[in-house]
């Protein structure tokens, strides 16, 4: 029982981390219809920025996290303005090719600059070890992930649903031609959203380095996970990807624990079943938009 609860807890932490990592992709893919397979590159970038700041420059971990967000968001702006925006009107295959090419360039560049071995971020003492909660061992680091990612999830949801910016973004997605005819600078709204999604990925990469492992191949290794979160969750809401990320996180942790040799099999079998059973995603609308 204790074991089961610990696994559940780890799975939830893992799932929430996946959500923060993938939420930017959910927005670019679901709202802006741009297939950005290079999303993980911004996550890795944030992770490396955090590692360098903490390990080499002695910046405190909790200061390095927002800096990782900012660095990845900035990288996102530059990439969007110079490269990706040319792809918005292209076919999905061209977007896939372009962004996959970008991933391989990012992997090679990271390897060249940072080396190929896995990077660990030196964590402060408060985040190490476990605390005991009702007899269940709770990792401090994972607890922090749940708190931070939970708050971020609420912030994302609130921004989309309740702010003027969120309404302008939804308007721009619903009908870009009319939105711009009514005074909304659609490309600017999209660029800002893209940058924010990249920033979240960068923060996720920094938070996840400890759990997921950070090496140059990170953007490729976790690409499938991001895509599962987005496609299984459906892209019409942000709640869908959130639930999908939780299910994926728990299933992955449980699968690796109970049937280590079949871990990956379980995940992909689940994904295939859901995609056949609910073509618009587990929580997607059943009517195509």
């Amino acid at each position: 029982m204790t074991n089961f609860l610990t696994i559940l807890f780890d799975g939830v932490a893992y799932g929430m981390l996946l959500f923060v990592l993938a939420s930017g992709l959910a927005v670019t893919l679901g709202l802006m219809n741009f297939v950005n397979l290079a999303h993980g590159a911004f996550a890795a970038f944030g992770g490396y920025v955090c590692a360098v700041l903490v390990n080499r420059s002695g910046v405190p971990f909790f200061v390095a996290l927002p800096l990782a967000f900012a660095a990845a968001a900035l990288a996102g702006v530059v990439a969007e303005r110079t490269l990706f925006r040319h792809l918005y009107r292209r076919s999905e295959l061209e977007q896939v090719l372009f962004t996959i090419g970008f991933v391989f360039m990012a992997v090679a560049a990271t390897d060249y600059v940072m080396g190929s071995s896995q990077v660990f971020i030196n964590l402060p003492d408060v985040l190490q070890g476990q605390i005991d909660l009702f007899g269940v061992g709770i990792g401090r680091y994972r607890l922090m992930i749940i708190v931070i990612c939970g708050l971020l999830t609420l912030a994302i949801q609130g921004t989309l649903a309740r702010t003027r910016f969120g309404a302008r973004l939804r308007a721009a997605v619903d009908d870009p031609r009319v939105a711009s005819g009514l005074g909304i600078n659609v490309p600017q709204v999209f660029a800002f959203t893209f940058a924010f999604g990249c920033g979240l990925a960068g923060l996720g990469g920094a938070l996840g380095a400890e759990i997921l492992g950070l090496d140059p191949y990170f953007p490729l290794k976790f690409l499938i996970y991001f895509l599962i979160v987005v496609t299984v969750g459906g892209s019409s809401t942000i709640t869908g990807p959130f639930m999908a990320a939780l299910v994926l996180g728990i299933a992955d942790v449980a699968g690796k624990y109970y049937v280590p040799k079949l871990g990956a099999f379980v995940i992909y079998a689940l994904m295939i079943v859901i995609l056949i059973w609910r073509p618009h995603g587990l929580f997607g609308r059943t009517v195509a938009r």
């Binding site: 309404a167 939804r170 997605v173 009514l182």
Partner: peptide, 22 residues
């Protein structure tokens, strides 16, 4: 100030948001 022929109300915005957004 444009009132398009197809009306083009933003369907994922509420009535109030359709106005407050612009």
């Amino acid at each position: 100030g444009w009132v398009p022929q197809e009306r083009n109300i933003f369907r994922s915005l509420t009535v109030e948001e359709n106005m407050s957004a612009v």
